[in-house]
Write a protein that binds this DNA or RNA. Structure first.
Lengths: 203, 203
DNA sequence: ATTTATTTTAACACACTGTATTATTATAAA
DNA sequence: TTTATAATAATACAGTGTGTTAAAATAAAT
């Protein structure tokens, strides 16, 4: 047996994914066709297909490479010692408050839509939505540990509600950035968290 | 001057839109191509193009014909005299609780995504999101008139928050119907409304 | 009844898309 | 040097939306 040309593979996949991401950032995801990505990455379409045999595979890799990394980052950097502030920071990390996260939110969105009809994307979709749910629960736990939440609260229901809140804000911030501006989104989250803590009013 | 073949036009547009809707319902919106819709409506692709010169136009008509009608229906049928119940019913009318509304929600979703890059869809997108916002405010007004809301409430912020809640529930109910089942969605909405009314806990 | 203007319809061509197949090149071990 | 296999390229295919161009149908005017 012989072992031919051992070429990185994983590194090349990353290179291709990064080229794709650049196109998505500048021209939008609808222009990230196989041929365009191949040209941007400096390989032929056939070569790209050798690394990603289908477009869903490429999309899957991009989502994993960028979105999952973003979610992990959100879970990692709860710097604030003040629980309320930490909770806010974690949630804001998920929302499209800057250009980068806006791109990520757009990718997540078209990925989610495609997942409705492509069975190849189902698992990752479940993983990502579960991740959102887990993160919501983490935020609630954080507040509960600080004894900020009423004991009678239904944690399961509230984490589903917070997850929906985050998802909805993401969508609307993309669709109507002039209405759901970063400051407004932040105020809404603050309001939601304070209400969870039993403060019917805040000021 | 002469006046040639006066053919319905508006009626034919409706016929085409209904054929398109049927395809969307059964095969999903990604199969509602111009050629497929034309075949289902019994006209040639060229003929369809005569009634809808672009696919965005067709999508626009479908959204107007089905979604706007649905929104108006929601605004019309606040039957319940009990304000809390009426509010719940109005909100539930927007959410994908049955097959029909699931289809509508899916259409709204891909429409929204396309609106991000198609300038032809911008106005309708704004109209629909404004409609959601207005409806949220209507619900809040309804509760306020019944003196169920604390006077200190920020109506503007709360209607933005409720709108995000509805949007998020719509998305997640489509993505994870097994988690966001109709009963769960209803419980979440009830919880949200009760919390707005100052009930930190409900049972 | 014939002409005429205009709508309606059809039939293409074009540039894309994702996918599949096939053959060629390059490489590393035997 | 031979050889097996990875990497790449080239091409074909069916599908998409869109645009153009020409034909058919129809209702009024002559």
């Amino acid at each position: 047996m012989t072992v031919p040309k051992i070429v990185d593979h994983d590194q090349k996949r990353k290179l291709i994914a990064e080229s794709a991401w650049k196109i998505i950032e500048t021209k939008g995801i609808e222009h990230a066709s196989i041929r365009a990505v191949a040209a941007a990455a400096g390989v032929s379409p056939g070569a790209l297909r050798h690394y990603f045999s289908t477009q869903d595979e490429l999309l899957l890799f991009i989502v994993d490479y960028y979105l999952t990394r973003g979610a992990d980052r959100a879970k990692g950097i709860e710097i604030s010692r003040i629980p309320m502030k930490a909770a806010l920071e974690v949630v804001l990390e998920l929302l499209p408050m800057d250009s980068d996260k806006r791109t990520a939110a757009g990718v997540w969105w078209v990925f989610a839509i495609r997942s409705l009809t492509s069975s190849a994307l189902q698992d990752k979709k479940d993983e990502l939505t579960d991740g959102l749910h887990d993160l919501s629960r983490t935020v609630l736990d954080l507040l509960a540990k600080a004894e900020l939440l009423p004991s009678s609260i239904d944690m399961e229901l509230e984490s589903l509600r917070l997850a929906a809140m985050i998802e909805g804000l993401t969508v609307l911030a993309l669709l109507r950035p002039e209405i759901y501006a970063p400051e407004t989104v932040e105020r809404i989250i603050v309001r939601h968290l304070q209400e969870l803590c039993g403060h019917a009013v805040n000021e």
